[in-house]
Design a binder for these strands. Structure first.
Lengths: 109, 109
DNA sequence: ATAATACGTAACTTTTAAGTTACTCAAACG
DNA sequence: CGTTTGAGTAACTTAAAAGTTACGTATTAT
């Protein structure tokens, strides 16, 4: 897994880029076929693809003059790790609450 | 869970806001105490907090003239759901590969 | 009652992101 | 070998985000 050169969080901040990832979850697509789903110029699509690639969300395979974009796990992993950190926070918060409740019920005895 | 009025993905696109969430995972903080960790004016901090709140990442409790910010799960859930969708994609991709490999080994027999 | 504190709002500036058009290049096609 | 097709780059415009200062308003402290 190569170090991403673009912030994953910023990459998915744009709705068009999120839509692109959704489309790519159905099928590998070229720049043009991807662009058919959007109301924007091809260079704009190109830019978005570049960002998604730099952030590790897609891999690109050049076949002749076409560029085939495929979903890649790296970017998603990065996000998952971030969320996992906070997940731990909730778990420990629950544990604290649990301990608190246990102590209370013990006091009643 | 109230419908968020701000896009969760955009909310965490900003590094300062992500740092704020990290800080809040350690402790509930007021606007000012939060701001101490940043090199920006207090109104700027206020704006970020507003966004995090609107996106469902924090809850705010007014105590006198202070505003206490606490981490909230809603925003994180939203993100997790999004990632989960793609997780399914990887799983099904793996299954397809598995089936493919099984068929190949059967042909050998 | 007055001063200090904690914060929000408004108006504005600056920065950055997203989009455009015009152009270029290389691969495929006839 | 000229032409079409798929895509990248450069220069620019537009729009949105992030930040600022100046000011207003409750709440707390003296």
């Amino acid at each position: 897994m190569v170090q991403p050169s673009f912030d994953a969080f910023q990459a998915i901040a744009d709705p068009s880029r999120r839509k692109m990832l959704r489309l790519l979850s159905k099928d590998s697509l070229t720049i043009n076929s991807l662009g058919e789903h959007f109301d924007m110029s091809r260079p704009a699509v190109s830019k978005h693809v570049k960002i998604l690639h730099a952030a590790g969300f897609i891999s690109i395979q050049d076949i002749g003059r076409e560029r085939h974009c495929t979903l890649k796990q790296d970017g998603f992993h990065h996000l998952q790790e971030w969320i996992d950190y906070f997940d731990k926070f909730w778990v420990s918060k629950l544990k604290k609450l649990e301990t608190l409740l246990n102590n209370k019920s013990q006091n009643k005895k």
